[in-house]
Design a protein around this nucleic acid. Structure first.
Lengths: 145, 145
DNA sequence: TTCGTTGCAAAAGGTTTGCATACCA
DNA sequence: TGGTATGCAAACCTTTTGCAACGAA
């Protein structure tokens, strides 16, 4: 039944137990997660999958635009399924890791103008936003900022 | 004579041959360079300095705001001395690596408003811009995009 | 003399690859 | 059956750390 999920995300790809499990776990995560996080969650759920396969599958999902990627300060890559409405910028809580898409049309437009005014072409951008979310300010989740 | 350079950048720090050489090399580079690039350049110039020292010194320069940092797709860190006018965003050529600061006040303001409208506080941002610079479009430097 | 600094070698940490095996179509 | 996908172990790369020796003040 996960076949549909695979056909939708990876047309032309073989449907395997591992890929189905990974896509499911990725959807459930909702927020940004690392490859090792996903692997740990899958293993805990009893799904047998190698870490290598997790990396390989995430890399393809990244190339095909099905997940957005950010980097921790440590350099670790974090993945999140890209919302259907095409949002691509997120505000991530430094304390709990929760993320929410933000509307960044004005930045997109600014980037377009930049190309026009600088002699640079094919301008691409990466925008990473972090902060402390409401719940973490009051309640105060454990880990330090 | 490089003492002045060190006192200016790192008040309270000991002036060593290695630090002087690193600051000089960093200034000469102008564009973004990696730790290993710097180390190679220094070694080629006959300056004896350990790679460890390069990393350690760059880390401090980063913390004290004397250099700006970006990340290659590979995860490698690249450093560039921060201009006197406090610019913090750069447009980097994907072909030759040349970078130029860009005026991004409108983005800065957008980020400030974001904090007000999302219940997130202490919002920080990272903006990376890449493109293909004028000379690389016509002349065409070697390496692929 | 003191204590910050250096540098080697080794560790760390995340990601990728070689290669034999397993399995989808 | 054919060729893709998987998984283990090992390789890779950049960055960090332990520790003894060095040297600026």
């Amino acid at each position: 039944m996960e076949d549909a999920l695979i056909k939708e995300h990876l047309p032309g790809w073989r449907s395997t137990r591992q890929r189905a499990a990974l896509l499911r776990a990725l959807r459930e995560a909702a927020d940004f997660v690392s490859a090792t996080d996903l692997h740990a969650a899958l293993t805990a759920d009893g799904a047998a999958i190698g870490l290598t396969t997790v990396y390989r599958t995430l890399r393809v999902l990244e190339r095909t635009g099905h997940v957005d990627v950010t980097r921790e300060k440590t350099g670790e890559r974090l993945y999140r399924p890209r919302p259907a409405d095409g949002h691509r910028h997120y505000l991530v809580c430094r304390r709990c890791g929760h993320s929410r898409p933000v509307e960044a049309d004005s930045v997109e437009r600014w980037v377009e103008n930049l190309a026009a005014s600088t002699a640079f072409t094919a301008v691409e951008h990466t925008l990473e936003l972090t902060g402390v979310c409401g719940p973490c300010q009051s309640g105060g989740t454990s880990s330090p900022e």
